[in-house]
Design a protein around this nucleic acid. Structure first.
Length: 765
DNA sequence: GACCTGCTGCGGTTTG
């Protein structure tokens, strides 16, 4: 067996010593292990990662698709480096967003590490206690951990934490893209800073990421101080051939619940979609992404029913966050084993890196709203060389009638599907969006540091948490405001000793002592569904429950036999009918500016893509006709009954801020994917107000006064409202600029149109 | 904002 150098792609790394390959430089025991694996060669990313880790002292960012062997790319050189390390304390901290991923990686890593006599320990809530205890007594080697378990380690046993984490050589962060947005990423960034503070020499960081739009953002996350020093190893592998189809279906116009269970007489679009999936997906392994938990249940139920009708074994199983771990693992194992044809119908739960074997095709219901998500899903199919990736997008449009809203005539679902495919081909991916959770994370981490240290001075807290990194957008004045709020009689989270030391207050003690403290996100209370002693999953408390109520869940139908109010348990048995429980949220995933703009380009264009089925072609041409008929090629305002649509062709961020600008002028708005709807207002009034906005763009801090639901993150209710409002405005300065330019573009259209139309509205503000 | 994601230590019980 010979190991050759992989075909070199472009690289931004200095070449190492002339002829030595990455392979030659690995620890002898690792080379032997690679031979035994019968690998023919190291992948390009692996080869380059080896030299980045072994030849430099820099942080390293490895960006490649799911199947490119990123974990090995990081661990082969990292283990080579730490193999002969002596002394106590872990040498490698591997952080993952998922327990399931830790278990996967542990299985892959453990035997290799054992060969090198390197200890490996899983450290998360479901990992065996005994192994953790052993590692606590004698910490060495690699620890695989979640952010929440790091949090617990730091505040429960600060002394042990220093002994365990105070002399790390490497911190490896898996699925780094999952930490680039949202509170959990801010939380982890703060924890890593605090780990650095435990040691004389901060550990080198290695980030493993999916292919993402802006690698500079990931590099900055990895090393906020010197992002330019981060070595970037990006996969140069070509993406596989893509076979693609967009299929369109129509709902009967007045359908009440397009995602409900099958009704007897009338076929809604989802029934027709299920028919098609049933006919093309059986016999192989596939993934179907349905968007919401309700739609997952609706589709899994339809597919199982179809199997029963023609007496064939069911191959379709649901997978989402409310299903029990047991049921989810059954499906994952079935997909991984690959001996029975299986289609997983999922929300986003099957997007991340857990190993599910080879997948023939990917389908999704509803036009994509995010390119990063679409790419991630596509990466699940066609992973073997020479095998094309197969993607089917099923869109639903309404049957139009006399009273239909003009927006429905634009066929925006079909248009968005076409726009998304065009951006996919262009390789566009959304950059991570703004963070709304800085104040919540600062509050949480303040309590955590005080619990860890027993007490701290305000200046020290600010230094530890905010002096650089993602929380540094908080000024000293902001932080003082936060602390004052925490110390207030209302919250009593902290109190100040006479010498100035800040300590936990009564509520702070209570909060940090609870098991619920470790995670930066919260979950609502839910009913647990149990059938014959087996947990099926959970549904929100908001669902009406009672003995005799029949529900559809986990791909089957159930009757509630008993309700345990105290234990929050619903005892259920199989039943033939039922309805799908509510999963609360009704809002949509936000759309990026670029996708909205591309939708307009699709409507203006004349070409008809070959990947559309006949129905989708028809809808596209209807949408284009409506676009011209509504005058959208030259204007932006469309009356709809008592309301007026304003087409900005910008994304959700911009439209939301524009909505608040209208609110500040006293008008109510609904937010669309490509604009806003001003309620109970005629176009001439809207036009006048838009001219005002264009003349004097509203100050974002003034607009912020009209935001109502400012509290969105876990501890926001304990953050002074004034601080939340100020942060909201500050994080949206660039959005405000985009709103101003969108408004100017709309107003320019008025002027063009006005020139040609003598009867145009004359009213001005 | 769709959808996700996480959890200590101790006391009690069961089992070998």
């Amino acid at each position: 067996m010979q190991i050759r150098r992989a075909t070199a792609g472009t690289t931004n790394l200095p070449q190492s010593g002339s002829d030595t390959t990455g392979f030659d430089r690995l620890h002898p025991e690792i080379r032997r292990w690679i031979w035994e694996q019968k690998w023919e060669e190291l992948r390009d990313v692996q080869d380059r990662a080896i030299s980045a880790v072994l030849d430099t002292e820099a942080d390293v960012l490895i960006a490649a698709s799911t199947a490119a062997g990123k974990t090995e790319a990081a661990f082969l050189p990292v283990l080579t480096k730490v193999a002969d390390r002596k002394g106590s304390g872990f040498s490698v901290l591997y952080v993952s967003p998922l327990k399931a991923l830790i278990n996967d990686q542990f299985r892959r890593l453990d035997q290799l590490a054992e060969r090198l006599e390197i200890d490996t320990v899983r450290w998360h809530g479901d990992a065996p206690q005994s192994a953790k205890q052993r590692a606590r007594r004698d910490p060495r080697g690699v620890v695989l951990i979640t952010p929440e378990s790091i949090e617990a380690m730091l505040i429960r046993r600060p002394g042990d934490a220093k002994a365990m984490l105070g002399s790390l050589d490497f911190i490896v962060i898996d699925e780094l893209h999952a930490f680039l947005k949202g509170p959990r990423g801010l939380h982890l960034a703060s924890l890593l800073r605090r780990i650095d503070a435990l040691s004389a020499q901060p550990a080198r960081r290695i980030g493993l990421s999916a292919t993402i739009g802006d690698l500079a953002v990931a590099a900055r996350w990895l090393n906020p101080g010197q992002a330019e020093d981060v070595r970037v190893v990006e996969s140069s592998a070509d993406s596989p051939e893509l076979r693609l189809q967009v299929r369109a279906y129509s709902d009967p116009e007045e359908v009440e619940d397009a995602d409900g269970l099958e009704a007897d007489e009338r076929q809604v679009a989802l029934d027709l979609i299920a028919d098609h999936m049933f006919s093309v997906l059986r016999g192989a392994n596939n993934l179907v992404f349905a968007g919401s938990r309700k739609r997952v249940e609706a589709l899994a139920d339809r597919l199982r029913t179809r199997s029963e009708k023609v007496s064939v074994p069911n191959e379709f199983y649901p997978h989402h966050g409310s299903l029990s771990k047991e049921l989810r693992e059954e499906l994952e194992d079935r997909l991984k084993k690959g001996d029975l044809p299986t289609t997983g119908v999922a929300t986003t739960t099957l997007e991340l890196g857990i190993d599910i074997g080879s997948i023939k095709s990917v389908a999704q219901v509803g036009a994509p709203r995010s390119l990063s998500s679409l790419r991630q899903r596509l990466g699940r199919s066609g992973r073997r060389r020479g095998v094309p990736a197969v993607l089917r997008i099923y869109v639903r449009e309404r049957l139009l009638g006399k009273g239909s809203d003009p927006v429905d005539h634009l066929r925006l679902e079909t248009v968005r599907a076409v726009a998304a495919v065009r951006l996919l081909v262009e390789r566009f991916v959304e950059p991570p969006s703004i963070d709304a959770a800085i104040a919540t994370v600062a509050l949480h981490q303040t309590l955590s540091v005080i619990a860890q240290e027993g007490g701290a001075r305000a200046g020290t807290l600010y230094q530890i948490l905010c002096s650089s990194g993602p929380l540094s957008s908080l000024t000293k004045a902001d932080y003082a405001q936060l602390l004052r709020g925490m110390a207030s009689a209302e919250h009593r989270l902290v109190e100040q000793a006479p010498d100035g030391t800040i300590m936990l207050g009564e509520q702070g003690e209570r909060l940090t002592a609870s098991r619920d403290f470790y995670a930066i996100f919260s979950t609502d209370e839910e009913w647990r569904l149990v059938s014959s002693g087996r947990t099926l999953g959970t549904i929100p408390m908001s669902n009406p429950v009672g003995v005799g109520v029949v529900i559809a869940f986990a791909g089957r139908r159930w009757r509630i036999e008993a309700v345990d109010d105290r234990g929050k348990v619903l005892e259920v048995v199989h039943h033939r009918s039922g309805r799908i429980p509510k999963f609360d949220n009704v809002m949509n995933e936000p759309v990026h500016d670029r996708l909205s703009a591309e939708m307009r380009a699709v409507l203006q264009d004349m070409s008809v893509p070959g990947f559309l089925d006949d129905a989708a072609k028809e809808y596209l041409s209807e949408g284009r006709a409506a676009f011209r008929q509504l005058g959208l090629d030259a204007g932006s305002l469309v009356p709809a009954g008592k309301d007026t649509h304003v087409f900005t062709w910008h994304g959700t961020d911009v439209n939301a801020v524009l909505g608040f600008a209208f609110a500040s002028a006293g008008l109510d708005c609904a937010i669309l994917d490509v604009g806003v709807t001003v309620l109970d207002t005629q176009p001439d009034v809207v036009q006048a107000i838009m001219r005002q906005i264009a003349d004097r763009p509203p100050d974002i801090d003034q607009v912020a006064d009209f935001v109502e639901n400012l509290q969105s993150a876990k501890f926001d209710e304990m953050v002074p409202e004034q601080l939340l409002r100020s942060l909201w405005g500050r994080s949206r300065h660039d959005v405000a600029e985009r709103v101003a330019s969108a408004v100017r573009a709309v107003v320019a259209d008025f002027n063009d149109t006005t020139n040609g139309k003598p009867d145009a509205p004359t009213r001005r503000g």
